[in-house]
Amino acid sequence: MSRSLAVDVAFVLFAGGAVVAAWLVFRTDSMVRAAYWLLASFLGVGAVMVLLHARFLGLVLVLMMAGEMTIMAVFMVMFMMNPAGLNPMTMVHQHGSAKVAGLVSFAGLALVGIVAEFPDRPRTSDADPTAELGVELLGDSMLIFETAGVTLLATMIGSIAVASKRGRFGDAEEGSGPPPLEPTARPAPEPEPAMEDHDHEGMHHG
């Protein structure tokens, strides 16, 4: 089997697998399975990237997504009413229009991909693409790369601030209540002053 044929076969397997797995994400009843089908889709795309000689990017994608999808699965189990998928379940809204939007965007983008005339300049150099990327990241594009780094730092600080339980004025869920029965009702009562809270707690625990 020649090399290009082997690459073609591998491409059909991985790319087809990625699309099928992506479709199954929204067709399975189990939250963990949905997260891991998405991971399978990323694995397929990562493999196609490796076939395209972007080895580092493909491997880093797998590295990143394996962790992220596991966290996603844990989140699903934490927050969803039917985590294990024991019952059939569909939790969708505006299903028809969503289907149309998905199809239209697929058709439009695929049309562009097929019809548009992209320059046919395949990669020719034998240089290591990872080394090229490294030189680019720490050379001409260092400012862009550093901006990405600072953005990630800001994200870390921001998401900890949003998610942390302890706020500056007490616990974050202080003053929160059960979800209202009427969608228009006030979602949560006003928080009580902190001083009284301490007294209440003392009485309950005492």
Binding site: V32, Y36, L39, R55, F56, L59, V60, V62, L63, A66, G67, M69, T70, A73, A84, D128, T130
Partner: peptide, 28 residues
């Protein structure tokens, strides 16, 4: 002898986490 062997190792070991979690979760 992959040119990015260390990254390959890291990616493979990240997928191990998926395997262990699946093993624990799928037993129901």
């Amino acid at each position: 002898d992959v040119a990015d062997g260390i990254v390959l190792f890291g990616a493979a070991m990240a997928v191990v986490m998926v395997g262990v979690y699946l093993h624990g979760w799928s037993a129901n």
